[in-house]
C-alpha cells in the first residue's frame, strides 16, 4: 500500500541531449534574429559606421585585429581573475567571521550593506593613483573591492540561513558548533554564495574595464575601446567590446559549472 503511494513521486528524468538542444533553441534563435535585425537596420537606414557599425563589419574587425585584441583580452582577463580571487577570498573570510560572531553581524553588516550601494567604481582614479596607473594590480583592486561586498553579504546571509528547526535537530544530536557549521551552515550557504559569485564575475569585468578607461597601458581592453572610439574607428571598439562580453559570459558560465560540481542540489532543486 505504502509502496504504491510512494511510486507517484519519483525523480524526473534529466533532459537528454535532444532536450537540451530544444531548450536552448529559442534563445539561440532570438540571438541570431537580433543580429540579423541589427544588420538589416544598419543597411536599410544606411547608418554611418561611427553611429552603429553592422555585425558583419564588427566581425571583420575582429578577424583583422585578432592578435592585438587577444593580447588586450588576456591582459584584462588577468586583472579580472586576480580581482575576483582577492575579492572572493576576502569576502568569504569576512562573511564567515561576521556570521560566526553575533557582535560583528550587528556592528559590521549594516556598513557592508551601505558600502554595497556605494558606486565603488568612482574610486577608480584613486586606485590607479595608489597601485600604479600602468599596473594590473590597480584594476584588480577595483574589481576586488567591487566583488567584496556582495560576496561578504551573501556569505553572511547564507551562513545564517539554516532554519531554526535544522539547528534544533543538530542540537538534539548534541552536535558540536564545528559540526553544525560543516554539515548545516556551509551547505545551506552555497546557493547564496554562488549567487554572489555569479554577480561578482560581472562586477569584476565591469570594474576592471572601467578602471582601464581612466588610464592603463594601450594593450588593455579598456584603453583599446577608448583609443579607437576617439579615432572614430568604432568597429575596432566594438570588436574589443565583443571580447569583453565573452569574458563576462565565460566567467559566469565557469561559475555555473563549478556550482554544478560543488553544490549540484542548488541547481537541480525545483526541477532543473
Amino acid at each position: 500500500m505504502i509502496a504504491g503511494a510512494a511510486a507517484d513521486r519519483v525523480a524526473p528524468p534529466g533532459p537528454g541531449l535532444g532536450g537540451r538542444l530544444r531548450e536552448w533553441a529559442p534563445a539561440a534563435g532570438a540571438f541570431l534574429g537580433a543580429l540579423a535585425a541589427w544588420e538589416l537596420l544598419v543597411r536599410g537606414l544606411g547608418l554611418k559606421q561611427f553611429i552603429l557599425p553592422s555585425p558583419v563589419a564588427i566581425g571583420a574587425a575582429v578577424g583583422q585585429y585578432l592578435p592585438e585584441l587577444w593580447a588586450a583580452t588576456s591582459y584584462t582577463l588577468v586583472e579580472i581573475l586576480l580581482g575576483l580571487m582577492i575579492g572572493m577570498v576576502a569576502g568569504l573570510l569576512a562573511g564567515i567571521v561576521t556570521a560566526r560572531f553575533g557582535g560583528f553581524r550587528e556592528s559590521v553588516l549594516p556598513f557592508a550593506i551601505a558600502a554595497n550601494s556605494v558606486p565603488i567604481i568612482a574610486f577608480a582614479p584613486i586606485f590607479n593613483n595608489w597601485f600604479g596607473i600602468d599596473k594590473q594590480l590597480s584594476k584588480a583592486m577595483i574589481a576586488a573591492v567591487i566583488c567584496f561586498f556582495p560576496v561578504m553579504i551573501n556569505t553572511v546571509r547564507g551562513l545564517t540561513s539554516a532554519s531554526p528547526a535544522a539547528l534544533e535537530l543538530m542540537r538534539s544530536y548534541a552536535a558540536s558548533d564545528a559540526e553544525v557549521f560543516r554539515k548545516v551552515r556551509i551547505p545551506a550557504a552555497m546557493p547564496f554564495v554562488f549567487t554572489a559569485l555569479r554577480v561578482a564575475t560581472t562586477l569584476a569585468t565591469i570594474g576592471a574595464i572601467i578602471g582601464e578607461y581612466f588610464g592603463a597601458p594601450k594593450v588593455s581592453l579598456g584603453q583599446y575601446i577608448v583609443t579607437y572610439s576617439s579615432y572614430l574607428n568604432f568597429e575596432r571598439s566594438w570588436a574589443a567590446i565583443v571580447f569583453a562580453c565573452a569574458i563576462g559570459i565565460g566567467l559566469y558560465v565557469a561559475v555555473v559549472l563549478v556550482e554544478r560540481v560543488v553544490a549540484p542540489w542548488t541547481l537541480e532543486r525545483g526541477g532543473g
Binding site: I2, A3, A5, A6, D8, R9, V10, A11, P12, W265, E268, R269, G270
Partner: peptide, 17 residues
C-alpha cells in the same frame, strides 16, 4: 518502507515520504 529511495534527494519525494 523507503528502501528503494535511498539514492533520491529529499525534494524528489512527497511530503509523506
Amino acid at each position: 518502507e523507503l528502501a528503494e529511495f535511498t539514492g533520491h534527494h529529499p525534494w524528489q519525494l512527497s511530503g509523506g515520504m
